[in-house]
C-alpha cells in the first residue's frame, strides 16, 4: 500500500514490484496481494490496454482518519468491545487529579 500511496499515478503490477525495494517477491505474489486488497476495497483497478493499473481506493490520510475515528469512537456501554483501550482520556479536572496522584506515587521512592 505504501508504494501505491506514494505513487503519483496508477501503477501496473510490474511497477509496484519495482517499487518494493526491500524484498525479493515474485510477480504472481504481488499480483495476488493486489487482488486481495481489491476485494477489501483498498485498491481499485482500471484496464490499460492489456494490463491493469492499480491505484489506492482511499488516501493514506483518509484511511488513517477512519482507523483513528473508529478506534476512539466507542460510545458508552452499548457499543461492542471490539477494541480494548489502555486508558481513555479524562477531562481537565480529572487530569489534574491524576497528575497529583502520580506525584504522590513518584515521591514515595
Amino acid at each position: 500500500m505504501n508504494v501505491l500511496w506514494d505513487a503519483p499515478a496508477p501503477m501496473t503490477v510490474r511497477e509496484v514490484l519495482d517499487g518494493l525495494e526491500e524484498r525479493d517477491l515474485a510477480y504472481t505474489t504481488v499480483m495476488t496481494v493486489l487482488d486481495r486488497l481489491g476485494t477489501k476495497d483498498m485498491v481499485k483497478r482500471e484496464r490499460d490496454g492489456r494490463a491493469f493499473r492499480y491505484a489506492p481506493a482511499t488516501t493514506r490520510d483518509a484511511a488513517t482518519s477512519e482507523l483513528l475515528h473508529d478506534a476512539l469512537d466507542q460510545a458508552g456501554v452499548d457499543r461492542t468491545a471490539a477494541l480494548v483501550h489502555f486508558a481513555r482520556t479524562v477531562d481537565p479536572d480529572e487530569a489534574a487529579a491524576l497528575r497529583a496522584a502520580l506525584d504522590d506515587i513518584l515521591d514515595r521512592t
Partner: peptide, 17 residues
C-alpha cells in the same frame, strides 16, 4: 489518560483515577 482529548473520545474516564 491525561493527554489533550481530541476527536470524540467518550470515556469511561473515571477508571484512570
Amino acid at each position: 489518560a491525561g493527554s489533550d482529548a481530541p476527536r470524540g473520545t467518550l470515556g469511561a474516564g473515571g477508571d484512570a483515577l
